[in-house]
Design a protein around this nucleic acid. Structure first.
Lengths: 180, 180
DNA sequence: ACGACCATGTAACAGGTTACATGATTCT
DNA sequence: AGAATCATGTAACCTGTTACATGGTCGT
């Protein structure tokens, strides 16, 4: 149960709304920990009850009002306690990989099509991460080195995936040629 | 809901018990899709009810009896249907990465210790994958090229992680030196 | 003696997903 | 006219985890 800790880590640097957090989970941190807005609103509610975060209500015009959350001392203490405990082992759930493993049954054209789409997505993500990393490299305050590491992880991960995708493409194209 | 499909993919090549599958999920496929024995036994039960797998009861001496499952035609059809549908986006849950992102609050010694342990684990996994890959390269039948791709993914993933870990180590050691 | 391996399962609970609900503004 | 963005939430449902339960063999 450490969605709460991921949220606390994000709130360490900035005041944010549930919506803001959902965006971050969809982008940068999403590679490492993902969550939908429903989960996030729920967890923010609990964290607030337990005094680990506080919020202020911000009315806006043209847009719906929002709640800006920030971490409390209690929240920071909880984070520190969690950081000391050994991390739960990493888990992955990658359906496309399962497909490749079962590739003999699939038809190669469809898989190639899907591969192309995923390559496209990963390349975009890679470009985003690289742009963000360059931004961070220019300004170096407190936590930025650690944020930079998160981005580096994202970059290395995309690169590894793309290299692998090329190997997959070769095998699929080969399978295709031998069918004719 | 595609634990069922991961199981069907594994059963494509071989007859296996729930226990066998659990071992595979813990090792090779685990990097890509993880599941505990409880989940697996439950899912095998459902798959059996729906005639997607069948099993034969195998008495053993010295060891408990086991059920060896194999995929049925219906199961294979279901797999093919699933392979045609676009895969659900990959999800990750890596608590250690979240820790690194919140690194400013953590004490570097503890994180370095944990990093060392994880590096150790990943190196072992890498060695395993490489050994398995070499085995597969010698024998090349039907599905082995796709199994090989799965292993390649594992290998590239470990390598990328280890490269990243070195960057993390540098930052942590640096933080440590500046504290004194 | 003690732990690891083989082998299967049930039950309670926590976590996560999908569907539903609302509504103004801005871009295409 | 339609889709996307901002912004919050509830409820039903499905999935996944943790705890419990059993018991023989083999290696150290």
């Amino acid at each position: 149960m450490s969605l709460r800790h991921a949220i606390l880590v994000l709130l360490q640097d900035e005041e944010a709304s549930g919506y803001d957090l959902a965006r971050e989970f969809a982008n940068s941190i999403g590679l490492v920990w993902n969550a939908t807005h429903q989960q996030i609103y729920l967890e923010l509610g609990k964290l607030n009850e337990q005094n680990m975060v506080h919020y202020r209500h911000v009315p806006q015009d043209g847009k719906p009002d929002k709640k800006l959350y920030r971490i409390t001392d209690e929240g920071r203490q909880e984070l520190v306690r969690w950081l000391r405990r050994p991390a739960a082992p990493a888990r992955v759930r990658d359906a496309f990989m399962v497909k490749v493993a079962g590739g003999a049954l699939a038809d190669p054209e469809t898989l190639l099509g899907e591969l192309d789409q995923l390559v496209q997505q990963r390349k975009e993500r890679l470009a985003n991460f690289e742009a963000e990393a360059r931004k961070l490299e220019r300004q170096s305050e407190g936590n930025s080195r650690f944020q930079h590491l998160t981005l580096r992880r994202g970059i290395l991960d995309q690169e590894a995936w793309l290299a692998w995708a090329e190997e997959v493409r070769e095998v699929l194209e080969d399978t295709l040629n031998h069918q004719h």
